[in-house]
Simulated scan of single mutants.
Amino acid sequence: MDIVNFFETLAGKWFSQRTTHDLAGQSSQAGKSNLLIEFLPATDGDLAQACAPLGHDPSQIACGLRIHQDSQIDGQTQKIQSTALMVIFPPTEAETGVLVQAASSSPALQGNYRLENEILTIVTPTEAGQVEERLWFVNPNLRMRTSVLKSGNTVQIASFCSEIRMGLVSPPS
Rank of each mutant, 00 (worst) to 15 (best):
T83Y: 08
M1D: 01
Q110N: 01
K150R: 07
G12H: 05
H56C: 07
T9S: 10
L23Y: 00
A102K: 06
V87M: 02
R145N: 11
P107K: 12
E133W: 09
Q17N: 15
L149V: 03
Q17I: 15
P53E: 13
R66Y: 06
Q81P: 01
G55Y: 13
V131E: 02
F39I: 08
L85A: 04
V131P: 11
S147C: 00
D70S: 02
Q156F: 03
N141M: 11
R66I: 09
E132K: 12
T20R: 06
H56W: 02
H68R: 13
F39V: 10
S159P: 14
F7P: 00
S82C: 02
E118Q: 09
S162N: 15
Q26S: 07
T9L: 14
F160N: 08
G64R: 10
S105W: 11
K13W: 13
Q130E: 04
T43D: 04
L23T: 03
T19R: 12
R143W: 10
L47A: 09
F160L: 14
G152T: 04
D74P: 03
E163K: 05
S106K: 14
D74G: 02
Q60N: 14
P58L: 00
L65P: 03
E127L: 15
I119M: 08
A48M: 01
P107L: 04
S159Q: 15
T96V: 06
N153M: 12
S27W: 07
N5R: 13
P41I: 08
G64A: 01
F39Q: 06
R18H: 03
L35P: 05
T92H: 11
K32A: 05
S104K: 14
P90C: 02
K32G: 11
E118S: 09
C51R: 13
